[in-house]
């Protein structure tokens, strides 16, 4: 099957749900004492639910330790969830055995952040891209042609195939990683900070490439990033995470122009915008302190220790993720408020 025929199949299913994640949790045990018994748990992900359609990009955003990468790793089953369900086109992957899982694994692939660490220095580009095909026993029949096709797809030259990863720049390495991820005709790509390690001029090349591939191949993306500017550019929908939970989710416009959760608002207002004329024109919400320890998260609302609106209720009751204001998108705050924090620059369209 060539790239194009597989794509045609996917494009017919655009808008259909590919992945559904229900109440996913990942608790990493903390071991202590002489016998290394579990004495607690880091609650990296603590009840996360979302769905992604074919052809759609859902972004998980948040700061270090919010659980976004852990969630991505559970989706591709690099991590075994503590509890919760991962439904791939209705099939529950979380309970499958390794054998049952294998054919499904090819449907979701991951691209890692660091293009220097995620490619073997001892393998040629050809072998790196061919490896998934070999693992799945698909290399013998037309594997070499398939690799050339994949390299072409991500904008690399055929003569690059015999070189080693260290001969390439960061941007080209990331393209190699994308070609590898596409080798098995996946329907969903988990993109874990795919451009964070790249310089801005190169970042834009890779972002454009990813967008073009999505349109051409009908791929669904789970895009994991801390960079809100990139997220605005690539996403259809966004889920904002804080300390292992989703605090607000909605379409790109809902999150960027009508955020209702104080954390989303603080996050958006904190990003420096590259326009010196806006200096001082923006009201910046500066949060106090740091993210609390995920081994011992605050009671009630996890954001309350840094929230300027926190009241007694916030410590007692966990706020459900629901649409309290009728804005059409849910947020997990007892006292949500529509507050557009982004500047509308004078000359903006």
């Amino acid at each position: 099957m060539t790239v194009e025929t597989a794509a045609a199949e996917r494009l017919e299913h655009l808008g259909e749900e590919v992945l559904r994640v229900e109440d996913l949790t990942m608790h990493f045990p903390i071991r202590g004492g002489v016998f290394r018994r579990p004495v607690g748990a880091v609650r990296a992900v603590d009840g996360v639910s979302f769905a992604i359609d074919q052809g759609e990009t859902l972004s998980l955003v948040g700061e270090s330790g919010c659980g976004k990468s852990t969630t991505g790793r559970m989706v591709v089953r690099l991590l075994e969830p503590t509890s919760g369900r991962i439904l791939y086109r209705g099939h529950d992957l979380a309970t499958m055995s390794e054998d049952e899982l294998r054919p499904w694994r090819s449907k979701t692939q991951i691209v890692f952040q660091d293009p220097y660490a995620s490619l073997s220095p001892r393998m040629t580009v050809h072998d790196i891209v061919a490896e998934p095909l070999r693992v799945q026993g698909r290399y013998r029949r037309g594997g070499a042609d398939r690799v050339s096709e994949l390299l072409d797809l991500v904008g690399l030259q055929p003569e690059h195939a015999n070189r080693y990863a260290h001969e390439f720049s960061g941007g080209q390495r990331q393209r190699i990683g994308i070609a590898r991820a596409l080798a098995l005709d996946p329907e969903l790509l988990v993109l874990d900070e795919p451009v964070s390690a790249l310089d801005v001029s190169i970042q834009a090349q890779v972002v454009n490439q990813l967008r073009e591939l999505q349109q051409r191949l009908g791929l669904a993306y789970l895009f994991i990033s801390h960079d809100l500017s990139i997220v605005r550019h690539v996403s259809h929908r966004i889920a904002v995470m804080y300390l292992g939970v989703i605090v607000e989710t909605g379409s790109r416009d809902e999150i960027f122009t009508a955020p209702t959760h104080p954390y989303t608002q603080a996050l958006l207002s904190s990003v420096p915008v590259p326009d010196p004329r806006l200096r001082g024109a923006r009201e910046r919400i500066t949060l106090k302190g740091d993210v609390p320890n995920p081994a011992n998260p605050p009671s009630g609302c996890r954001f309350r220790t840094r929230c300027w609106k926190a009241e007694a209720k916030c410590a007692e009751e966990v706020p459900a993720l629901e649409d309290r204001l009728g804005t059409g998108h849910p947020s997990a705050c007892h006292f949500p408020e529509l507050l557009p924090v982004l500047p509308t620059s004078g000359a903006a369209s």
């Binding site: 941007g171 801005v200 001029s201 970042q203 834009a204 972002v207 550019h233 915008v273 326009d275 903006a348």
Partner: peptide, 24 residues
């Protein structure tokens, strides 16, 4: 100019990023 054009913007929607071709 190329640097500024290649930036995605937080404060507005940009149809397409314009990367600088090639690498340093």
């Amino acid at each position: 100019v190329g640097l500024l054009e290649s930036l995605p913007r937080l404060d507005r929607d940009v149809d397409e990023l314009h990367p600088i071709p090639g690498s340093p």
